[in-house]
Amino acid sequence: MNDTVSFGYEDVAPDEKTRRVGGVFSSVASRYDIMNDAMSGGMHRLWKDRFVRRVKPRAGEQILDMAGGTGDIAFRLAKSGAAVTVADINPQMLEVGVERAQKRGIDGLVWTEANAETLAFPDRFFDAYTIAFGIRNVTDIPKALREAHRVLRRGGRFFCLEFSTTLWPGFAEIYDAYSHKMVPKLGQLLAHDADSYRYLIESIRRFPDMTRFEAMIGEAGFVQTNVEPMLGGLVAIHSGWKI
């Protein structure tokens, strides 16, 4: 672990990042899904649908959805009959998810406050581990990946949905201008919080590119790693297997 880690465009002490990221998600929890729709034009729903299709959840499986507080991925996974545990470091995000599940009449999910870097689950417990738009907010990403590997059974699968850097000429410049100028304004308008959304955009820029992140997944012990870019890599589905 380095002496400093990135918090947006700043380099801060690891404990400081953990504290600040907690503050960001406590601030935006109640408006998180509305902002996702506004920022992506609703496309995040299609990305998540595609992501869960790649996971191929099955009835009776044990699946850990990490950083899944609002339930978006868990609700999709649970339709298969899988036993889904939703874990998130932020209690406010979990509160939103529990409330949404109650309103939708979705029972059977397990909700737990947990840090991706220090999971309390036993070794080789889950059949699949999912994390959507959460890994870049983890303070020690390699440690979290090793924990994901630890809690998976042999033959278990890891799937991560995360923003990256689009390689499409022209679109990259357009998206860069939109995200830096418009997203904080949307954050202020819809969530009354421009700074948190400014951080979320900056955190995408500081996140490793697709090739490097795929290598990090392999370094954590996963094999048959794969990356599936969408919109030229603006968003990517990363996967790997534990043998």
Rank of each mutant, 00 (worst) to 15 (best):
V55S: 05
L189I: 12
G97H: 00
P122M: 12
I89C: 07
N226K: 07
L152W: 04
S6F: 10
P142R: 05
M66F: 05
G81D: 15
D127H: 15
T118M: 11
F125E: 13
M66I: 13
R154I: 09
M230Q: 12
G156T: 09
I73M: 07
T18A: 10
A83E: 12
P122K: 12
P14S: 14
Y178T: 13
W168C: 11
E16P: 02
I201E: 02
T225L: 04
V52D: 00
G68E: 04
S179M: 07
R153Y: 14
A132F: 03
K56P: 07
I106Y: 04
S40R: 03
M93D: 00
M210L: 06
G187H: 01
G170D: 12
Q62F: 14
L145M: 04
W111V: 07
A82G: 09
R154D: 15
G8R: 01
Y32Q: 11
G23K: 02
L109K: 05
A78I: 05
M182K: 05
G41S: 14
P91F: 08
A172G: 10
G134M: 04
G232H: 06
H149L: 13
R58Y: 15
R53K: 11
I141M: 06
F213V: 01
I89D: 03
G42F: 13
V86R: 02
E228G: 01
D140K: 00
L234Y: 05
T85F: 12
R54K: 14
Q92P: 04
R19C: 10
F133Y: 09
F126Y: 12
G155H: 06
V12M: 11
G218A: 09
D176E: 13
G233K: 00
Q102A: 14
A215Y: 08
G221W: 05
A194E: 10
G71F: 05
S26N: 15
P91E: 13
R50T: 12
K79P: 06
L152V: 10
A215N: 05
S203W: 01
H192A: 13
A128Y: 05
G41F: 10
F51D: 03
R205M: 05
D49H: 13
D127E: 13
A191L: 04
R45F: 09
N2R: 09
S164P: 03
I237T: 07
G233V: 02
P122N: 12
E61S: 11
I174Q: 12
F75N: 00
I141V: 10
S203V: 02
D15H: 11
F171H: 02
Y175V: 11
R212V: 09
A177P: 03
G60A: 14
R20E: 06
F121Y: 15
I204L: 08
K181E: 15
M39P: 00
A87Q: 00
I204E: 07
Q224V: 04
R150D: 14
G69N: 01
T18H: 06
A236F: 01
E117T: 07
M230L: 15
K56L: 14
H180I: 10
G218T: 10
I204P: 02
F125T: 15
V21E: 01
T85K: 11
